[in-house]
Design a protein around this nucleic acid. Sequence first.
RNA 1: GGGCAGGUGGCGGAAUGGCAGACGCGCUGGACUCAAAAUCCAGUGAGAGUAAUCUCGUGAGGGUUCAACUCCCUCCCUGCCCACCA
Length: 813
Amino acid sequence: MKRYNPKEIEKKWQKLWEENGFYKAVDFDKKPKYYTLFEFPYPSGDGLHVGHARPYTAMDAYARSKRMQGYNVLFPIGWDAFGLPTENYAIANKIHPRVATERNVKNFKRQMKMLGLSLDWSREVNTTDPKYYKWTQWIFLQLYKAGLAYRAEISINWCPKCKVGLANEEVVNGKHERCGTPVEKKVKKQWLFAITKYADRLLKDLDTVDYPERVRNSQINWIGRSEGALIKFPISPPKADRPRADNFQFSKEVEVFTTRADTLFGVTFIVVSPELAKQWIDLGWKAPKEVSVYIKKAIDKSELERQENKEKTGVDSGIVAIHPLSKKEIPVWVADYVLAGYGTGAVMGVPAHDERDFEFATKFKLPIIEVVSQDGKVHSFKKAYEGDGVMVNSEGFNGLKSKEGGEKIIKELEKLKVGKSSVNYKLRDWVFSRQHYWGEPIPIIYCKKCGEVAVDEKDLPVLLPDVKHYEPTDTGESPLADIKEWVNVKCPKCDEPAKRETDTMPNWAGSNWYYLAYLMQGISNFQFPISKYKEVFKYWMPIDLYDGGMEHTTLHLLYSRFIYKFLYDKGFVPTAEPYAIRRSHGVVLAEDGRKMSKSYKNVITPDDVVDEFGADTLRLYEMFMAPFDQMVPWSSRSVIGVHRFLDRLWKFYNGKINEGKNEELENGFKKLISKITEDLNSLKFNTAVAAFMEFSNKMIKAKTISKNVLENYLKLFAPFAPHITEELWQKLGHKESINLQNWPKAGEVAKETEITLVVQINGRVRDTIKVKVGISQNEAEKFAMNSEKIKKYLGSQKPKKVIFTGKLINLVV
RNA sequence: GGGCAGGUGGCGGAAUGGCAGACGCGCUGGACUCAAAAUCCAGUGAGAGUAAUCUCGUGAGGGUUCAACUCCCUCCCUGCCCACCA
């Protein structure tokens, strides 16, 4: 008998499958479509490790099973290749990023083919391909024309090491998530996408898609919708007994956002962010010395410093505002616990009912007035009471419940035209400029006469020029700024000399729409307009199952939903949401329980495992090791288990088989079909593999086995271990590939004639008796009472109550 | 501080109201072998007992139920994500 030698068989079948084009999806095919997708990889210099292979192999099993079930399956692949890691890698290794990308892609491709993935390679895309980024730029222009891409001078997060502006999402604990360098502030003119205009829909439409709870919640939390009111506090001329604000003409009022209008009468101070105070200074406010010093210091603080020091600081600005209802004078303070980017950048201080305000008031000895009573008692003010209650000390609103009172106060403010109800979001507009070489050029030209001018669609793509030096510059300008012949162009409008935008797009740009690029077959030949693809988009979209990592929940997953919605509004795509079902796979840790990392030297690559055991073993172990969505450490030891299983299966199919009837096995196999089908549908790959093992143990022990079971077991198992099953399938005498077989049907499970009746006394199992199916409670009770064991237990006692379920009888004494 | 996911043998895990520990790793014993590896067979939650068997057992405590890993309440612990968001 030939030994099970994966090296020999795997390459052979991979070649045959590819040559026959089994995995090419057909546009507009009559079969029902199924679009299944995993996040396209970033082709890094390190290649794949076994963590990447987890979703790839599992989703492959899924795609293969769907094909056998009669679907027209699209399972595509591409490369998200722009961005910093490649640029850094290229700089470190002194090669061009394009060359590095080519090399890395080649390696990734080799590794993925080695795994026997049933990908449609004919639709492969690469975000750094000019034919691809032409469209990325085109989308930018559509957003620009719609007023959703705009330039603004803003304080951005700046990584001094990478010399690049960062989006909020890329700053983690005040550090650049990629390199760990503390982030600094820098004021620069940047491109922004108005994702906040879509905040409400991004939130609401979560109800129309099937995402894991934790993903859904993260997005809801990130968007951070809150309902409240905007309230204006007029600024009053300075009074003699307060430090003079020499000039109060810079603004008529301070506007605040609050979710607790019911606490309005509890306002004892107003706090504005240092950034807002700075704006006032710019508008002509002559702030007292210590105030302007505080403002400057606060603004210069890095993100990290602001987060580290939670002790409240602040300074009395000397400005006085008037309470819109009580007409009391309210002092205005400046403090850095107020965030410039949220709401109006100013808050009303209600120390009795907000912990932060309470802390601030305590520190600076500001008055505290209770206006919401929890139980009729006056509070001692050891801490703020933030819950609802009955309003007190609130003039005409006393006695009302918080919710009702808040609404009434807003109505009153609206009548007086000093306030209105309002909705606020935590979500910020998306900073879309990067000062780097390895990204899509932003298709904008600056003309002295005409200003900002969009590159004409027919002139796309704006090619990324070849340069010798692509290192980031210390000035914070893109390396592209140095390339005179590229930067200097003629204005498309007036033909006068003009300059190109030298910033590039962030690495999220290409992944915004790659799932559409897969549908634009032969992307290189396609021309504008995009409406040409409407039909093919309509056929394939939305994506039926999208797998990806948790780390993209508030990045790629949110960004791409926004872009897709925009394209929907423009009528280019057929649905409001791109992903019908989203699932997230768990991270694979190294054997030592830490993250797999080159620096820990604990990385296991698929190459190692395939070399020793073959691709089918790797595939099965990836699926077997734990529930798909759960984090799990790799275990080299346990890989052997699945290899032994395949080895036994190989020996069994190659050995002497006694063909013949075996009802028990036949029946068990029908159950297996249902089990595997269900487990695949709910992505329970681990229990599916266990069921295959269990059944194969039964087959091997069986005295006889029918051809039906023998053959269909292979079909059922083919999506999981495609190579060995193909080999054994052909060994059974079949000429046609197992890929082309239909999914086995479970059919009716033959009725069992005998079952094991479980007999319990007071809920504890005391005996099991073989009985005929469908016996009555009386019969079951007789059987139970006749059991020696039960007699022994019961002694002279008689059951008070008997519970019978058909399979179980419980005697209560 | 908020949100989410968890806590079951030596390990990864299975069972979502009805025989806890499927499947696999590891371990123990045996067969084969000069020997080892591989393979095959048997065993493997803990405690007691020569044994049949008994008692205990799913983070802790309480509750619902004939019956709870599973449902409810209180608490502890771990991991992940978010966090001065007014």
